[in-house]
Computed example of a mutant assay.
Amino acid sequence: MPPQPLDSTASADSISGMALFLDVDGCLIDLAERPEDVVVPAGLIGDLERLSTRIGGALALVSGRAIADLDRLFAPLSLPAAGQHGLEWRAAPAGPVERVPVDRTVLARLAAALADFATGKTGLRVEPKGAAVAIHYRQATALGPDVIAFAETLLAGTAGWHALAGKMVVEFKPDGVDKGSAVERFLALPPFAGRRPLAAGDDVTDEDAFAAALRHDGVALQVGDREPTVANRRLPDPAAMRDWIARLAASR
């Protein structure tokens, strides 16, 4: 069954017992041609801070970005966060960041192979992400099938790693960690424990977080119209998501 529209008129009281796990790019903020060109709209940082306070701090960012990048975007606000699709994890605002150990030799080999592949192909961009590496083709959409085919070939002999395909991007990361495992880890700790989860996101990379929320009788909120999805609720775009957050943050 397709996701049903989210009740965007809900009050803060209606989510007082919930834990919110929010993707960033394409969910809270609009996508840009390059990840470094995104803009955090005026008012969003304050709304997130107020909403987090109203639900007892049970609000975390769960993103493909590194946590340091999230802190830069949302400064001075610091939130619990999972970065790089769960390869980084921070339990509390401004707390220490835990990082999953990765094989740096394999990571360097993958990054070099992607750089060689992208050489001479206008619009392709390789992004080192610390514990992972991604190749973007948003500025060269016609090359998408070639990028995906190359990713499959590159990983054919690489045990313990997989390619995560998202919107105009393929990311290479170690097996065993994803946004769903990050959500599960948060739900085992205060202030998230015992709350009903709501996981929001826009991309296939958010499906693991959606599944985790649904396992706990929660809400899986798809932002946009991507199909297929396991999500059970939907908002049309990041602007609608920001409006919903603003209403919750402002309600009494």
Rank of each mutant, 00 (worst) to 15 (best):
P2C: 02
P2R: 15
S8N: 04
T9V: 03
T9Y: 04
A10M: 15
S11F: 01
D13S: 15
I15T: 02
S16Q: 12
G17P: 01
L22S: 03
I29V: 15
D30R: 13
A32P: 03
V40G: 08
A42I: 07
G43E: 04
G43W: 10
L44S: 02
L44I: 05
R50K: 15
L51I: 04
S52T: 14
R54E: 01
G57M: 05
G57F: 10
A58T: 10
L59V: 13
L59F: 10
S63W: 07
I67E: 02
A68L: 06
D69V: 12
D71R: 11
F74I: 06
A75T: 13
P76I: 12
L79V: 09
L79R: 10
A82H: 11
A82N: 12
Q84V: 15
H85D: 09
H85W: 10
E88F: 13
E88S: 12
A91P: 04
A92C: 01
P93V: 09
P96F: 11
R99P: 00
D103K: 08
R104Y: 06
V106G: 02
L107Y: 10
A108S: 13
L114M: 15
A118I: 05
T122K: 15
T122N: 14
L124Y: 02
V126I: 14
E127H: 07
A132V: 06
V133Y: 09
A134V: 08
I135K: 00
R138D: 04
R138H: 13
Q139G: 05
T141A: 15
T141D: 04
P145D: 11
V147L: 03
A151F: 08
A151E: 01
E152Y: 01
L155K: 07
G157C: 08
L164E: 11
K167I: 00
F172S: 09
S181K: 13
A182N: 09
L187A: 11
L189F: 03
P190Y: 11
G194K: 10
R195P: 00
R196D: 00
A199P: 01
G201F: 05
D203Y: 07
V204S: 14
T205F: 06
D206A: 10
D206W: 02
D208S: 15
A209D: 02
H216L: 12
G218Y: 06
A220E: 11
A220D: 13
G224F: 08
D225E: 14
R226M: 10
P228G: 14
P228K: 14
R234W: 00
L235T: 04
P236S: 12
A240W: 04
R242W: 08
A249P: 01
S251W: 08
S251Q: 05
R252L: 02
